[in-house]
C-alpha cells in the first residue's frame, strides 16, 4: 500500500511538472495577448510526432528532444505572425475560432502524414531500466522526465522573476500601451512569448511521447487538463500554473488509485471549488489590480 502511494506520488509529480510545461505557454500567451489558444494542444502533439520521426529516423532521442521544440517553435512563429497578429485587439471570439480551426487543421495534417495508428518515441539507451529506492521501484526514464521538467521550470521561473526579459514580459502583459510608449516593440515580445510557449509544449510532447503513446487524439486530450490548470492557477499567472499543474498531476495519479472512473470528475470539481472560493484562481490578478 505504502509502495503504491509512493509510486502514485512520483507519477503525480512527474505529470505535474510536465503538464506545467504545457500550461506555462497557454497561461503566458493568454496573460500577454488575451488569446485563448485552442491550438496549444495541437502544438504539443506536433512535438510528439516530430520527436517520433526524428528519434526513429536518426536513431537519437536527444536530437528529437532538441530539434522537435525548435521546429514547433518556428511553426509557432509563423502561426503568430500570419494568423493571430491581424486579429489582436478584436473580440476574443475571433481568436477562439481561429485557434480552434488551426487545431482541427493540424490534427487533419497529422492523420494524413503519420496515419491514425499509435506510435511511441524510443527511449534513450541510458534510461531503459528501473531504479529501486527503499520500497519503491520506478523506471529510470520516468525519473528523468521528472528531473528535466523540474530543472526547466525552475530556470524559467527564475528568468521571469529576475531577468530583464522577464520584467519586460510582465510589463507588456500589465500595460501594453505604456511599454509601447517607452519605445519597446511589444509585437516582438508577443511573438517571442508565443514561440517560447509553443516550444515548451513541444518539449513536453517529446518527453511524454516516450512514456505515453503518440496518437492523433493526444492534443485534444491534454488541452482540457491544460485549461483546467490555467483556470485554477489564475489566468496569466506562471506561478499559478506551476502550482495548479502539480495539484492536477497528483489528483490524476491518486484519483486513479482510489476511483478510476471519477478521476476526470475530480479535476472539474476541484476547478469549481477553486472558482467559487477564489474566482480569479489561486494566483490570478484580483479585480482591483
Amino acid at each position: 500500500m505504502i509502495e503504491s502511494i509512493l509510486r502514485a506520488t512520483l507519477l503525480g509529480l512527474q505529470l505535474g511538472v510536465t503538464f506545467a510545461l504545457v500550461a506555462a505557454g497557454l497561461t503566458l500567451i493568454f496573460g500577454m495577448m488575451d488569446v485563448i489558444n485552442f491550438a496549444h494542444g495541437a502544438l504539443y502533439m506536433l512535438g510528439g510526432y516530430f520527436g517520433y520521426t526524428i528519434a526513429t529516423q536518426f536513431g537519437s532521442f536527444w536530437a528529437a528532444l532538441v530539434l522537435a521544440p525548435i521546429i514547433v517553435g518556428v511553426l509557432g512563429a509563423a502561426m503568430e505572425k500570419f494568423t493571430l497578429r491581424p486579429l489582436y485587439g478584436r473580440n476574443p471570439l475571433y481568436h477562439i475560432l481561429l485557434t480552434y480551426g488551426l487545431a482541427v487543421m493540424i490534427q487533419g495534417v497529422v492523420l494524413e502524414v503519420w496515419g491514425a495508428s499509435s506510435q511511441q518515441i524510443p527511449r534513450p539507451g541510458q534510461f531503459t531500466g528501473s531504479i529501486t529506492v527503499g520500497p519503491v521501484t520506478y523506471p529510470t526514464y520516468w525519473l528523468f522526465v521528472l528531473v528535466v521538467s523540474t530543472v526547466i521550470l525552475t530556470v524559467i521561473w527564475y528568468a521571469i522573476e529576475n531577468s530583464n526579459l522577464g520584467i519586460l514580459m510582465r510589463a507588456s502583459a500589465h500595460d501594453t500601451e505604456m511599454v509601447n510608449a517607452l519605445g519597446i516593440d511589444v509585437s516582438k515580445v508577443f511573438t517571442g512569448v508565443f514561440v517560447f510557449g509553443a516550444a515548451l509544449a513541444a518539449l513536453a510532447g517529446v518527453l511524454l511521447g516516450a512514456t505515453r503513446s503518440v496518437n492523433p487524439g493526444m492534443g485534444a486530450g491534454i488541452i482540457i487538463e491544460a485549461f483546467v490548470i490555467v483556470v485554477i492557477g489564475g489566468l496569466g499567472s506562471f506561478k499559478g500554473a506551476v502550482y495548479a499543474a502539480l495539484l492536477i498531476g497528483l489528483v490524476t495519479a491518486y484519483g486513479a488509485l482510489v476511483a478510476p472512473t471519477l478521476t476526470e470528475l475530480f479535476l472539474f470539481v476541484l476547478m469549481a471549488v477553486v472558482l467559487l472560493v477564489r474566482p480569479s484562481g489561486l494566483f490570478g490578478a484580483t479585480e482591483a489590480a
Binding site: L15, G221, A253, Y254, T261, E264
Partner: peptide
Amino acid sequence: PLGTDDFSP
C-alpha cells in the same frame, strides 16, 4: 477507463 494515458496506478 477508456483512453487512459497512465496505467501505473
